[in-house]
Simulated scan of single mutants.
Amino acid sequence: MTNSNVYIYGIDLGKNCFHIIAMDKQGHILSRQKLTRSQMKKFVINTPPTTVCFEACPGSQYWGRMFADAGFEVKIIPAQFVKPYLKSNKNDFNDAAAIAEAGSRGSMRCVPLKTDEQLALQATHRVRQRFITERTAVVNQMRALLLEYGITVPVGRKVFERALPSILEDADNGLPDFMRALVFRLRERWQYLDVQIDEMSELLKQAAIASEQCKLISTVPGIGPIVSTALIAAVGSGNQFKRARDMSAWLGLVPKQYSTGGKSNLGSISKRGNTYLRTLVIQGAKALKIHMNREQSSLGKWIGRLEASHHHHVVLIALANKLIRICWKVLTSGREYQAYPSAV
């Protein structure tokens, strides 16, 4: 496509097939193309640079870097922002048209291109989380199998881990030998996953030590190597957010709003954005809330005042919100966190 009237391309990405819509400034469709993977690479090289848009999905970062290197302005749009522009029935060309329509809006929110470091951290976190999910499934299956023979264990993975040897060694608990062998096999799988999770955690700790940005936000209370690497993998420098509240809103830590007619209605937190990262931040806030010395900084005093009049869950979310705001300020300013001393 060499039409000089093309203002924007909308591309519906696939693994082997790509559907492209070319639009002018008035939103008129100039052409439709279906390309293979090899044809897509030639398209990047031979097409005059303009704006190109696609949904955030597996492969979008790869093609985004390729188009950016060729001089294109790249817009990677979250899928939920594309859907309102889909007209009529869903098919690949209609999806591409909706992507182009969404990308032509000046106020559209886009996903920035990630660096190689961010992609590596993101991949490590995803593999680690997969191992944790698999370990939870193994533990739950072991509990269910034992329950069929009347053997119950109190809640808690560590409690189960301590109780399991005595269960397997007890010859009088009614557990058949074949079931005992199955549970033992699952226990070996559990131990293997523990090793894998520890290795992934160690990789993230080493990455946090090597990254200047991770070291910077690790100075914030409640932010350790796991949270810092997850945060940098997701937001990078944080410059895509205009203010601290925007980053906490992106993470879903601000109240959900439904306001009309001048009446403001605020509900529970929106829980938008990255569920995994939000969970890690809340866990970090919980550990900080329990263990911090509240007499040494104004942050501790602030937590104490909130606890006097709010439920502890509300306090926890408020603290997580504040930590994310502090992280944004630390990242964008390039200065380490310095606690305000507690007022006398």
Rank of each mutant, 00 (worst) to 15 (best):
N3E: 12
Y7S: 14
G10V: 05
D12P: 01
K15Q: 11
F18L: 06
H19F: 10
M23R: 04
K25E: 14
Q26N: 13
T36V: 01
R37G: 03
S38L: 12
K42R: 15
V44M: 05
N46E: 15
S60I: 09
W63Y: 15
G71Y: 00
E73G: 11
E73A: 13
K75F: 10
I77C: 05
P78L: 11
Q80C: 04
S88F: 13
N89Y: 11
N89A: 12
K90P: 03
N91G: 01
A98H: 09
A102F: 03
S104V: 02
C110Q: 05
V111S: 00
V111A: 01
T115W: 00
Q118A: 07
L119D: 14
L121N: 06
Q122G: 13
T124M: 14
H125L: 10
V127E: 14
V127S: 09
I132Q: 10
V139T: 10
L145S: 07
L145I: 12
L146V: 05
P154M: 07
K158V: 04
F160T: 02
A163V: 00
P165G: 09
S166Y: 06
D170H: 07
A171V: 09
L175R: 06
P176K: 09
D177W: 02
M179L: 15
M179N: 06
M179R: 09
L182Q: 12
E188H: 09
Q196I: 08
M200S: 15
L203F: 08
A207Q: 13
A208M: 08
A208N: 11
G222D: 11
G222R: 04
V227L: 10
S228E: 08
I232E: 01
A234W: 04
Q240W: 07
P255Q: 00
Q257T: 12
G261K: 06
S264D: 08
S270D: 00
N274Y: 00
T275W: 03
L277P: 09
N293V: 09
Q296M: 06
L299Y: 04
G300V: 01
W302L: 00
E307Y: 04
A308H: 13
S309A: 13
V314L: 03
L316P: 02
A318I: 12
K322G: 07
R325F: 05
I326G: 03
C327F: 10
L331P: 00
S342I: 05
